[in-house]
Amino acid sequence: MLEAFSKAPDFTLIDQNGKKVTLSEFEAKKNVVLAFYPFDWSPVCSDQISFYNEMHSLFEKRDAIVIGISVDSMFCHTAFAENRKLTLPLLADFEPKGEVAREYGVYNNKEGHASRALFVIDKNRTIVQSYLSPDSENPGADGILEALDTMNKA
């Protein structure tokens, strides 16, 4: 797993609306929280991503965007986002399966999905915090908000 002070690898993936999203497009503009998660429709993932969506204004106040990434397809993300009324970008690390999760060191080869992991990335594309959570636990947002607050004070 990539650790703090590493340069976040750039990538381009498709979101639930078919739009290409590139990490470097946020450089010098926004702090980014990458939330890798196993699957759209699993109970813990659904709760975690919906929670981040509801907290949109708290992230925006900290000049940050949360981006969800799983190995699900764009079509799965579209249905999931519509069902849960999600507005945050959900990126499809679908083909080649898990390529971005592998670059970040959070692909679970045994299970065939991204592990539940968080990366808080500053506007210079430097990882300031990384956290690997058990797949069965929602990591919440306290650690993310604390990391963003610390970054904004610096």
Rank of each mutant, 00 (worst) to 15 (best):
F75T: 00
T22Y: 12
I144F: 02
P139S: 08
D72M: 05
V66D: 00
D142Y: 04
A101F: 02
Y131K: 12
N53G: 02
N138M: 01
L132G: 10
S73R: 13
S50C: 12
A64Y: 02
F36Y: 09
M55T: 00
E103P: 01
M55Y: 04
L86S: 13
R84N: 14
G143H: 03
Y104K: 12
K85C: 02
T150D: 10
S133E: 11
L145Y: 12
F59C: 06
D10A: 07
M74T: 15
G18Q: 05
L90E: 06
S136L: 14
V44L: 09
E60V: 07
L132F: 09
A81P: 03
S24G: 08
N109D: 15
V100F: 03
S46K: 14
V128A: 00
N53A: 04
P139I: 00
V128D: 09
E103L: 11
G140N: 05
I127A: 02
V120Y: 07
T87E: 13
W41M: 11
G143L: 00
L148Y: 14
E146G: 05
F94D: 12
G98M: 02
I127D: 07
A35Y: 09
S133N: 13
F75M: 06
Q16Y: 00
S50W: 05
G140Y: 03
I49G: 03
G98E: 05
E111S: 15
I65M: 12
V100C: 00
H113K: 14
Y104M: 04
A117M: 15
N53M: 04
V120C: 04
F5K: 14
F26H: 06
Q16R: 10
V71P: 03
A92Y: 11
N17T: 11
F94T: 05
E95T: 13
Y104F: 14
L118F: 07
T126R: 13
F75N: 06
V106W: 08
